[in-house]
Nucleic acid binder design. Structure first.
Lengths: 186, 186
DNA sequence: CCATGTGAAGGTATTCACAGCC
DNA sequence: GGCTGTGAATACCTTCACATGG
């Protein structure tokens, strides 16, 4: 992946900085907030650094996630291999459409949305909302009731949830709408 | 939409702040950087405020966008009605799969990816990249060659592009991976 | 000698309180 | 009276330069 690290045990803040496109002191300062990871004169041990960062980001344990809404976007998420990289595992999907219920997409079975209440007993603490706009708040409410602790919401709407549940909303259209701001004309 | 504004011409910074969940002085300060929009004792004229903000964000003109990669995610984007809200119009899609080329999804025809070079002459200045990881950089290069000015990239990889082209990368798995950070345990 | 970690300087953003206008 | 726009005060984050440790 990072060619500069091939066959090396250590990496300097400078190399890391060049790779991600920032300055070396930013790397050092950021790391220092969480403790002393590096060795002066040598650099950072790559393996131990990765382990430390994963622990800080709480990515050291695999967490189970439930997907709600198996439309185009939901299907894309089920097909997406990238989640495993970050210690996330989509183990179940829900939908309202009887035609979809019972099917298996990428090894994940689609269940009736009424079964959403069983999440807690199954040890699932994350929810992914990929439903139409109008169903957004309702779906979040159900997930909260089911004891979920974090929600990634793709529905483009204002969401109310108790403070104990962290909601991250990803409005894809709004992200795209940021682009024109950087474009002088045309 | 915003029930507090129904039948009203003006809205106060307090109402706006409550609605989006911030403090009233933040609203006023932010607006003040771009000029005087409001009337003391009255508030902000809703219609004129919306117009001003759209102009600042360069959302007052409709821009054409091209989608590259019509997989699950690409299909979801084509089906998504939200883009129009922000003055964005996906007018063409590209793919490499001969089975997909020629089909029409949501009124948008899928063309052979080799036709990507015709973007400039068609007045298309935005690109949306929804291709697999490995094709990310290649696709971005082609879009840049085709004269695109802004790119929304869903491929989870490091992208190099000239400074004149603004690239916004949206790594969905990474967004989901932010959630565990806010969750004490479980 | 090399690269880290950090105190200090500088700059930027947030928060406040109030003068001024409708 | 009510609400805006803004200077002042505060907190925060970024940048730098260097002492310290391997």
């Amino acid at each position: 992946m990072l060619s500069a690290t091939q066959g090396r045990e250590h990496i300097s803040s400078k190399s890391l900085a060049d790779f991600v496109g920032v300055n070396s002191w930013q790397i050092r300062k950021d790391f220092s907030y969480f403790g002393d990871f590096g060795t002066p004169g040598v650099g950072y041990n790559i393996e131990s650094l990765a382990k430390q960062i994963k622990k800080i980001l709480r990515l050291d344990v695999v967490r189970k996630a439930a997907l709600v809404g198996v439309g185009d976007l939901g299907s894309a998420l089920l097909a997406y291999p990238g989640f495993r990289t970050y210690g996330l595992d989509i183990v179940v999907a829900f939908d309202v459409d009887p035609k979809k219920i019972g099917r298996t997409v990428n090894g994940v079975e689609i269940e009736n949305i009424t079964r959403i209440a069983t999440l807690q007993e199954r040890g699932i603490s994350l929810g992914i909302v990929a439903v139409p706009h109008a169903a957004g708040q309702f779906t979040v409410d159900k997930l909260v009731e089911a004891g979920v602790r974090g929600i990634l919401n793709f529905a483009p709407c204002k969401i109310d949830a108790p403070r104990r549940v962290k909601v991250i909303t990803l409005d894809i259209a709004m992200e795209l709408a940021r682009l024109p701001y950087y474009m002088p004309a045309g």
